[in-house]
Simulated scan of single mutants.
Amino acid sequence: MTALLETRGLKAFYGDFQALFGVDISVAEGETIAIIGANGAGKTTLMRAISGVLASDPDAILCRGEPIGALAAPDVLASGIAMVPEGRRLFPSLTVEENLLIGAYSRKVGPTWTLESVYELFPVLRERRSNPATALSGGQQQMVAIGRALLSNPDLLLCDEISLGLAPVVVRDIYAAFPRIRASGASIVIVEQDIGQALKVASRVYCMMEGRITLCGRSSELNRDQIHAAYFGAERHGLH
């Protein structure tokens, strides 16, 4: 069965600095996976490469078996891959609804997500629809960023550090939307520093350290020692 998304020996550079070293991951149709790792592990770089923000070798990233590594970000979005970026990146001069509707400009054909269905997913956004987006709380802004991505009708939703800086109760509310997103047919990749949160929502987990995959497995089968060793390095934890 062809994976929805696959990376093969993916490398990424910032100028002369190499940030990813031969990363292999795969995401199946309807699957949720988590990418975990400490700060600087390469998680965001991986998301930037998949979404076309960073250039890659054409065959290093495949979508349904087709090479997309050389595509620019708008073309990756048009192919059905949308990213919720770290830091949300909303337009401060636009209202909540205007920020949401930006996602529809690159809309893939399909009836899956509309403005109304995003408001059903996050009812507070309907109440705040006319407010400047940056006047909202951090959690509500994150909902806008997710809703904006969903309005492009993605087959794959990339979520980069969506819980960063948010209170646990707000994180819980945001993650409660994921079953509905999965039910729409979308696959999800979640980048998380919070190991516990990642294990709750993802069927499989990849751990990264220093630009490499150090562990991959089903969430239900990985134990704490394995994850900590892959997350921080075996020697730092006395794990050999």
Rank of each mutant, 00 (worst) to 15 (best):
A183M: 04
T44R: 02
R204T: 01
D57G: 08
E192V: 00
Y105R: 15
V205W: 08
R128G: 03
L199W: 05
L94H: 07
L157E: 00
F21N: 07
L157V: 01
H240V: 11
M1C: 04
E192Q: 08
V144F: 13
G65C: 06
R204V: 00
L151G: 10
G139V: 04
E97Y: 03
F122E: 01
D173Y: 01
R236A: 12
L46P: 02
A55N: 07
G65P: 02
I25E: 06
H228W: 12
A34M: 06
R88N: 12
T112G: 01
F178C: 01
C216H: 14
L156E: 03
D173K: 10
S56G: 01
Q226W: 03
V23S: 03
V109R: 15
S117A: 09
M1Q: 08
P58H: 10
A177M: 01
L125F: 03
L94P: 13
Q226S: 10
M143H: 06
V53T: 11
D173R: 09
V118R: 11
G37A: 03
L199S: 13
G37I: 03
L4W: 07
L166D: 05
F91G: 11
T32C: 15
D75P: 00
L10C: 04
T32E: 13
V144Q: 12
I102L: 15
W113H: 07
D173M: 07
L239H: 15
L215C: 07
A60H: 04
M143A: 03
V109H: 10
Q197G: 14
A198R: 05
E31V: 01
A198E: 05
M83T: 11
E97V: 10
A82N: 08
V118M: 12
E161G: 03
F13Y: 15
L94T: 03
N153H: 10
D24E: 09
L215N: 07
S203Q: 14
F91C: 13
Y119V: 02
